Simulated assay, not measured.
Amino acid sequence: MIGLVRGQLRRPGLFAMQAPAMLVFGAVVLAAAHAGWALGSAVMAAALIAHGIWDIFHLRANRIVSRSMAEWCAILDLLLGVGILVLL
């Protein structure tokens, strides 16, 4: 919401990077939701780890989202993904 108010959604290249990624991650989540318990958990763990890597890309590029948001999301996604794998 803050990005919308500040006009950051109109920055060039924002949707060129974010929209395809949203579609890919969304498709993976839907596939995991319809898979069996073990396979769905493994797919979800892989998706979280991939999203953590995506967040590290944003952190290194210092674009699209703030650095603190990218750091927090990368750590959260990676820990959750590894945690799910450990529990499997």
Score class of each variant (00 low, 15 high):
residue 42 A to G: 10
residue 44 M to V: 08
residue 9 L to P: 10
residue 46 A to G: 15
residue 2 I to L: 12
residue 28 V to Y: 03
residue 85 L to F: 01
residue 74 A to C: 00
residue 49 I to G: 11
residue 68 S to E: 14
residue 86 V to R: 11
residue 35 A to G: 03
residue 29 V to Y: 09
residue 12 P to T: 10
residue 35 A to Q: 13
residue 32 A to R: 00
residue 24 V to H: 03
residue 52 G to A: 06
residue 7 G to V: 10
residue 38 A to P: 00
residue 27 A to D: 14
residue 2 I to S: 12
residue 59 L to Q: 08
residue 7 G to T: 05
residue 11 R to N: 08
residue 11 R to V: 07
residue 83 G to Q: 03
residue 6 R to Q: 13
residue 67 R to S: 11
residue 64 I to E: 07
residue 48 L to R: 02
residue 75 I to K: 02
residue 72 W to Q: 03
residue 14 L to V: 06
residue 80 L to Y: 09
residue 41 S to L: 09
residue 45 A to R: 00
residue 40 G to C: 07
residue 84 I to C: 08
residue 81 G to I: 00
residue 79 L to A: 15
residue 17 M to L: 07
residue 9 L to M: 12
residue 45 A to N: 04
residue 70 A to R: 06
residue 59 L to D: 01
residue 87 L to P: 00
residue 49 I to D: 14
residue 71 E to D: 05
residue 68 S to H: 11
residue 78 L to W: 08
residue 15 F to E: 08
residue 77 D to F: 02
residue 81 G to L: 04
residue 9 L to V: 09
residue 50 A to R: 07
residue 33 A to T: 03
residue 23 L to R: 03
residue 63 R to A: 09
residue 19 A to S: 11
residue 35 A to H: 01
residue 34 H to D: 05
residue 10 R to Q: 13
residue 40 G to W: 07
residue 80 L to G: 09
residue 49 I to P: 05
residue 34 H to M: 08
residue 33 A to R: 05
residue 8 Q to D: 14
residue 1 M to V: 14
residue 56 I to M: 14
residue 45 A to M: 10
residue 1 M to N: 06
residue 48 L to Y: 05
residue 58 H to T: 06
residue 37 W to P: 07
residue 78 L to V: 15
residue 31 A to C: 10
residue 86 V to S: 06
residue 4 L to P: 00
residue 68 S to Q: 15
residue 13 G to R: 04
residue 35 A to P: 01
residue 65 V to I: 14
residue 56 I to S: 02
